[in-house]
Amino acid sequence: MSLKLKALTKSLWVFHLCIGGSCNNCDIEILDLLTPRYDVERFGIMLVGSIRHADVLLITGSLTYKSAVRAKRLYEQMPKPGVVVAVGSCALGRGIFKDGYNTPCPLDELIPVDLYIPGCPPKPEAMIAGIVKLVEKVKGKR
């Protein structure tokens, strides 16, 4: 395993992007992960303020025409190797807004997605389980 990949298995720094086209429940549940009951900061998982510092791009919500350009740009700015995580039904396949006129395409048609966490919204436990699976995958155990 390369050194760069090995760094991805330790404390992950997360940039959380609510891409728009979502109710904000996934975002609230992500914040919930930081508060005392779940507290993922004890594993070194931290929200950072800029994509340039992040290992993980965490995306919630379905794309809209206004936000798709910005999502693409943010992905290009992410230092590689990095991981893209889609949280919630909307980010996976536009969810309930599939028939809307302002939701052009699912997220993974625009940028590559490494981990899908389904649910509306997914429980914080599901997100932790997802991250554990991701780390195992990077380590090559899956």
Binding site: F15, H16, C18, I19, S22, N24, D27, L31, V48, L74
Partner: peptide, 8 residues
């Protein structure tokens, strides 16, 4: 966009 809260 802002990581901590909800809608953009």
């Amino acid at each position: 966009y802002h990581p901590l809260q909800e809608e953009p």
